[in-house]
Design a protein around this nucleic acid. Sequence first.
DNA 1: AGCCATAGTTACTCCAATGTAAGTAACTGA
DNA 2: TCAGTTACTTACATTGGAGTAACTATGGCT
Lengths: 134, 134
Amino acid sequence: MAGYQKIMKKEISKKCENDRDDCPVKDVLNRVGDKWSMLTVIMLSDHGTLRFNELHRLIDGISQRMLTVTLKTLEADGLLKRKMYQQIPPKVEYTLTSLGESLVVPLMTLYDWANAHMPAIKAARAKFGKAAAT
Amino acid sequence: MAGYQKIMKKEISKKCENDRDDCPVKDVLNRVGDKWSMLTVIMLSDHGTLRFNELHRLIDGISQRMLTVTLKTLEADGLLKRKMYQQIPPKVEYTLTSLGESLVVPLMTLYDWANAHMPAIKAARAKFGKAAAT
DNA sequence: AGCCATAGTTACTCCAATGTAAGTAACTGA
DNA sequence: TCAGTTACTTACATTGGAGTAACTATGGCT
């Protein structure tokens, strides 16, 4: 393993050992790891700007409540911005901030890893299931 | 944004739109995003090989049950391997597989991002909290 | 008058993840 | 004889994230 990664490993471990309620990775994973945030970020990254109901239609299966909740926490974290138009019927547009766009990069890395190693993981699961059944 | 990323973005969106229950990123996030998996992987990555109680002491706050559950799912996914020694009292050693080690790399990317942008996120939260209180 | 649309909110339920506490088997040292 | 060790398992309680459905306000359309 490269020297850089060795140094980072030490650091990551130290942070999470001593400071476990304030570990930034845990914090970020709590956001990104929920059911809808990542999908929302990806949709906005792909389509640029979207209205509430456009997102609702695009993200298959999300309820109105979960969409508002997800959008609110993403907005609170500064990952997207809301633009309201004072008109009837209401119109609100959502767009990723540059912070939100920058999150797409590490997400991509994770996507690459997941995509590359999914077959290995599925094989391991199948094998484990068989071993447990024996 | 670079061409490579644009292509990846299209792909990630397509996968998650059409195939939402089999999106590999969601699957991986479900594992990595839980409360203890990432910490366990990091500890093992840092220390190489650890016994059950060594992990228990190292991961501050984890219960025995959660440690066994976490280790079992990580093992089922092929991210770590168990080595049992048939002796009394029992001795079991846990080590990351190469698959598990490879997961540390994207985790590092996420860590870098989280570390770099945490101040911005905290600032956004503080600002949002104030705006809501008004 | 009645229905549709937008962008939500409110009040509930439900379930899976997590936590707590105790029990298990086999041996060791005091 | 009895506590201590290791690596768990089992049963039960709790909690927070997610789901469902109904309700809100305003105006346009028919």
